[in-house]
Amino acid sequence: MNSLAERLELSIARNSPVGDDGDPELFVTALVLEFPLSGGEVRIVDRGHPAPIVVGPEGARRLVTAPALPLGLAALSPGGRAEATVHPLGPGEVLVVHTDGVSEARDTHGVF
Results as ranks from 00 to 15, higher is better:
residue 1 M to D: 11
residue 1 M to Y: 12
residue 2 N to A: 09
residue 2 N to Y: 11
residue 3 S to Y: 07
residue 4 L to I: 08
residue 4 L to D: 10
residue 5 A to T: 03
residue 5 A to P: 03
residue 6 E to I: 07
residue 6 E to H: 08
residue 6 E to K: 08
residue 7 R to G: 08
residue 8 L to I: 14
residue 9 E to G: 02
residue 10 L to T: 08
residue 12 I to W: 04
residue 13 A to H: 12
residue 13 A to S: 14
residue 15 N to A: 08
residue 17 P to C: 12
residue 19 G to E: 13
residue 19 G to Y: 07
residue 20 D to A: 14
residue 21 D to E: 11
residue 21 D to P: 05
residue 22 G to C: 15
residue 22 G to L: 11
residue 24 P to D: 02
residue 24 P to H: 03
residue 24 P to I: 01
residue 25 E to M: 14
residue 26 L to N: 06
residue 27 F to P: 00
residue 27 F to L: 03
residue 28 V to A: 07
residue 28 V to T: 13
residue 29 T to H: 02
residue 29 T to C: 01
residue 30 A to H: 01
residue 31 L to Q: 04
residue 32 V to N: 00
residue 32 V to A: 01
residue 32 V to E: 00
residue 32 V to R: 00
residue 34 E to K: 11
residue 34 E to T: 14
residue 35 F to S: 03
residue 36 P to L: 07
residue 37 L to Q: 11
residue 40 G to F: 04
residue 41 E to G: 06
residue 41 E to Y: 05
residue 42 V to S: 01
residue 43 R to T: 02
residue 47 R to V: 02
residue 48 G to T: 01
residue 48 G to R: 00
residue 52 P to L: 06
residue 54 V to R: 08
residue 54 V to C: 09
residue 54 V to I: 12
residue 55 V to Y: 05
residue 55 V to C: 10
residue 56 G to L: 04
residue 57 P to E: 12
residue 58 E to Q: 11
residue 59 G to Q: 10
residue 60 A to S: 13
residue 62 R to G: 07
residue 62 R to S: 13
residue 62 R to A: 10
residue 62 R to N: 06
residue 64 V to Y: 06
residue 64 V to D: 12
residue 66 A to S: 14
residue 68 A to V: 10
residue 68 A to Y: 08
residue 69 L to K: 14
residue 69 L to R: 09
residue 69 L to C: 09
residue 71 L to G: 01
residue 72 G to D: 00
residue 75 A to F: 09
residue 75 A to C: 15
residue 77 S to C: 13
residue 78 P to C: 10
residue 78 P to E: 09
residue 78 P to T: 10
residue 79 G to H: 10
residue 79 G to L: 06
residue 79 G to W: 09
residue 79 G to N: 08
residue 80 G to L: 11
residue 82 A to G: 02
residue 83 E to H: 05
residue 83 E to G: 03
residue 83 E to I: 03
residue 84 A to H: 04
residue 84 A to S: 09
residue 86 V to Y: 07
residue 87 H to F: 04
residue 88 P to E: 03
residue 88 P to Q: 02
residue 89 L to E: 03
residue 89 L to I: 03
residue 90 G to K: 11
residue 90 G to E: 10
residue 91 P to N: 09
residue 93 E to P: 11
residue 94 V to L: 15
residue 94 V to G: 13
residue 95 L to H: 01
residue 96 V to T: 14
residue 96 V to R: 14
residue 96 V to L: 15
residue 98 H to D: 14
residue 98 H to V: 15
residue 102 V to Y: 15
residue 104 E to W: 05
residue 105 A to R: 07
residue 105 A to Q: 04
residue 106 R to C: 15
residue 108 T to E: 15
residue 108 T to K: 13
residue 108 T to Q: 12
residue 110 G to M: 11
residue 111 V to S: 10
